[in-house]
């Protein structure tokens, strides 16, 4: 550093000049300079202590072996250990008792909401209301259930899935493609009958003719009155909720080609505690029976 006195009359300038403005070539304040040097030293020290420099075999590990990934793993372990007691209890109590214990209920409701948003919302929607009426992804917060809306039924559905190929205990059923079995005119009559039993506008003559067809072809699964059959996941055809649409075109399409949805079995993917959490969450979200 220059020993030059910064306060003399003609301090040295940098030699640059812009519009008559010159810049003094005064030394930096000592404290500033030393702080600057210290920051460089500290920066180098940090790269030695912490992982920093990239090499062909990955970055240098650093003296203290710190890793943010290990930190996260430790955090997860810590939370798992902290929740172990309540998780164990939740996994073992009878399902209907979860709601009676405020601690279990609160844990299940909050945990279930998180599980739902992670694993279920992709098909059933963020609000658990299906994607859109008629799209085939069931609304879970209404009071209509294909396979049952008690907490036990919901628990079974989540654990084993629906038409899930990798679970032998999965809920399974299939509606025949009536396009191969019935004439289009018969299908029209069937559709008019379904419109009639669900309280929608219909052609009375066709509907009456459709009644006999319904008894022969549909009642086995959907019931004599069309109120559905939960043991085979057959929807109630008399209510206001339509999984694949209740208008004439949608119904004709459904009867002709048949539709079914597939849900994975979560038994092997989620823990029993997680399944019970999300089952409680769904059961309490408005549709529970």
């Amino acid at each position: 550093m220059s020993k030059q006195d910064p306060h003399r009359d003609d301090p040295a300038t940098t030699g640059h000049e812009w519009d008559g403005i010159q810049e003094f070539d005064n030394p930096l304040p000592r404290w500033w300079l030393w702080t600057f040097i210290a920051t460089i030293v500290i920066a180098i020290a940090i790269t030695i202590i912490y992982p920093a420099w990239p090499t062909f075999n990955g970055p240098t590990k650093g003296l203290i072996g710190y890793s943010s990934r290990a930190d996260v793993a430790a955090d997860i372990q810590r939370f798992k250990a902290a929740n172990e007691a309540v998780d164990t209890k939740l996994s073992t109590v009878p399902l209907e008792d979860i709601n009676k214990d405020p601690v279990l209920r609160s844990y299940a409701m909050n945990g279930g909401a998180a599980v739902f948003k992670t694993w279920c919302a992709q098909c059933h929607g963020q609000g658990a209301n299906g994607v859109k009426m008629g799209s085939g992804y069931p609304n879970l917060i209404d009071d209509d259930w294909l396979w049952g809306g008690t907490i036990e039924a919901i628990h079974t559905t989540i654990t084993h899935g629906i038409r899930s190929a990798d679970d032998p205990d999965t809920r399974d059923s299939a509606m025949p493609q009536f396009g191969d079995i019935l004439e289009p005119s018969e299908i029209d009559q069937l559709v008019q009958h379904v419109r009639a039993i669900s309280g929608q506008s219909n052609d009375a003559t066709s509907a009456k003719a459709g009644a006999a067809l319904f008894a022969d072809n549909c009642a086995a699964c959907h019931g004599d009155k069309g109120t559905g059959g939960r043991d085979v996941g057959a929807p109630n055809l008399t209510d206001a909720i339509w999984l694949y649409g209740g208008d004439v075109a949608s119904l004709t399409n459904t009867v002709t080609n048949a539709h079914y949805g597939i849900m994975p079995a979560w038994g092997g993917r989620l823990t029993e505690s997680q399944i019970r959490q999300v089952a409680t969450f769904i059961h309490e979200s408005g549709g529970g029976e």
Partner: peptide
């Protein structure tokens, strides 16, 4: 009001808000 969904249709055709 819960806005996702803004309403739910129940099986008897009534409308529910949360």
């Amino acid at each position: 009001p819960v806005r996702n969904p803004i309403f739910v249709t129940l099986s008897d055709g009534s409308i529910r808000n949360t």
